[in-house]
Amino acid sequence: MSDSKILKIENLSAIYLVREGSIKASVDINLEMEEGSITAIVGESASGKSTILEAMTRSLPPNGRIIGGNVFYRRDGNYVNIMEIEEEELRKLRWSEIALVPQAVQNALNPTMRVFDHFMDTVVDHGVEWSTKKVWDRASKLLDMMGLDGNRVLRSFPHELSGGMRQRTLIALSLLFDPKVLILDEPTSALDVLTQARLIRVLDEVHRELKITMIFVTHDLPVAAELSDYMGVIYGGNLMERGKTEDIIGDPKHPYTQALVASLMSVVGDVEKIKPIPGEPPSLLNPPNGCVFHPRCPFRMDKCSVETPPLFKLSENHYVRCWLYEK
C-alpha cells in the first residue's frame, strides 16, 4: 500500500516569527499523496494553506521556521526525506522533479524578455544541454497542450498575453523538465470565471495526459471539488478533515466542513438553504485552546475548549480532527 504514495507529509509544523511572537501557521499536518492523483488543500486566507506548500518544499520566507516533521518523497523506489537532504540536492529536485508554481504567477514573467527566453533561461540555469531548437519544440508542444498557440506565444512579450494566458505559460514552463509532482498555489485566484473554467479543464487534461501528481491550494471549495481526487481542509493552521473529494463534499464530517459547504453561494441548489457561518476565524498568533474551531462550532462540548482533538480515522481514506468521532 505504502508504495503507491509519492509524497508523505508527517507531523509537519511551521511557524512565522513576528514581533508579537510566533504565528502557528501549520500545526501537525499529516497528508499523503497517491502517485498520479490530484490533491486539493482548501482553506481560507491566512489559514496556513500556502505555508504547507512552502514548508514541504523548504521555500518558506526568511522569518518562517519548520519546527518539526518529515516530508518523504519517493525517488527511484526509495523515500528521501526532503527535510534532511542537502541544499544542493534539493535544488536539483526542485523544478526537475517537483515543480512549484507560486501564487499570482501571472506577474512572474520578465516584461523585457520574450516568452521563449524564459524557457531558454530555465534550461541554461539548470545546466541542461539542450539545443535551442529542442527547447523551442518542447516549449511550443507544452504551450499547445495548454491550449495556446505555441509558436505565437513564444515570440510574444508578456504584456501581449492576457492574465489567463500568462498563467498557462507559467504552468507550461514548470512542466519543462517533466516533473513528477506539480505544486500549484492558488492557480485560479486572480482569473475571471471563464478563464478559470478553461484552466481547470486544461489542468485536468494535462493530468490525464502526463499522469503527473498534482497538489494545489485554493480558497475556493467548488474549484477544489471540480478538479481534485483527494482533499484536505485547513482551518486555523490545522488539518480538520481529509479524504476523497466526493466523500468530503457529499458527506462532510467535520462541523467546519459542514458549515463551509452550507455557506456556499452557488449557482445551483436551493437558495433558501444557504447558511452563513457565525463568528470570526481564529488568530494564529493566539489560537484558542483545544480545537481551533470550537468558538464557532454548533456542536461544541466542554472537552473541545480544553484539548486538541487528534485525527480520528473514519475509513481507509477519511480522517477527521473532531471529538464528535471519538470512539
Binding site: 473554467a197 471540480e226 449557482v267 445551483v268
Partner: peptide, 13 residues
Amino acid sequence: LILASPVANKRLA
C-alpha cells in the same frame, strides 16, 4: 458564465 462557475457537485461539474 453559469456553466463556468464551479460547483461542488462533481457529476454536475
